[in-house]
Write a protein that binds this DNA or RNA. Structure first.
Length: 226
DNA sequence: CGACAGATAGTCT
DNA sequence: GACTATCTGTCGC
């Protein structure tokens, strides 16, 4: 097509490797860092980089909605095959979005906890959806699971959409990944009820990224092996 | 900065 | 009836 133009879009419009969707949530969570979340709205497409994730996986995880293989109307989506999207309402007010991974009937999901808009135009649209914010930190736009859902206009109507097909309202694209960046891992946020699973280091984020929601200086540590 | 209370409704016991 | 994978405003230092 436009052959005299330098191809800067090599990283855009490409799907993630299917192995990310078939992996366990624990394997997939760090691999989703640096990938691109795309939200298509009537106002335009919004692209942002995933910078923080948490793994909720398997029926043994007491932090997971699907602990004990509890299969209900709400948790049903976690039991779907990898590539589905799981959206739920929390505290009566906010939504959280997850990437379902693994095999059908084996509940795994990766919570997306923070994203960074790719361009100023992306940030502009997110700002519009998010509503008026107190002046100050720009990252307040999407440095938290509830905030990013509001900024991307994600609600339960998107529960069950396919993130691995690039023709829906919400999907994933190959991004720059995390090459050259350090990944930090530590305990997941706000799951005191999870008992021995509360301390598992199943949260991952890109070190020094300003959109990361919280930093636990005591317990977070830099990932050593890839 | 940190700590805390309140909002608010779906989900499960 | 209790709890919740959160966020915001307010108060105090």
């Amino acid at each position: 097509m436009n052959s005299n133009k330098k191809d800067t879009s090599q990283l855009y419009g490409r799907p993630l490797p299917p192995s990310i969707y078939t992996a366990t949530a624990l394997e997939a969570a760090p691999k989703l860092l640096g990938q691109t979340l795309v939200r298509c709205t009537e106002d335009g497409d919004i692209r942002c980089k995933i910078v923080e994730t948490e793994s909720y996986g398997g029926k043994e995880d007491k932090g997971s909605h699907a602990f004990g293989a509890r299969r209900t109307a709400r948790t049903e989506m976690m039991f779907q095959a990898g590539g589905a999207c799981y959206v739920y309402l929390i505290y009566g007010m906010y939504h959280c979005v997850n990437v379902v991974t693994g095999d059908e009937d084996d509940p795994h999901a990766v919570l997306i906890r923070a994203v960074e808009p790719l361009t100023a135009r992306d940030a502009e649209l997110m700002q519009l959806y998010r509503g008026k914010l107190p002046a100050g930190k720009a990252a307040n736009l999407s440095n938290g699971p509830g905030k990013l859902c509001r900024a991307l206009r994600i609600d339960k109507s998107l529960n069950g959409c396919q993130l691995n097909r690039m023709d829906g309202p919400l999907y994933l694209e190959l991004g720059a990944g995390t090459s050259g960046l350090s990944i930090v891992q530590g305990p997941r946020i706000n799951i005191p009820y999870a008992e021995e699973y509360a301390a598992k280091p199943w949260r991952f984020y890109i070190q020094e990224n300003p959109y990361v929601s919280v930093i636990d200086k005591k317990n977070d540590y830099r990932r050593t092996s890839k």
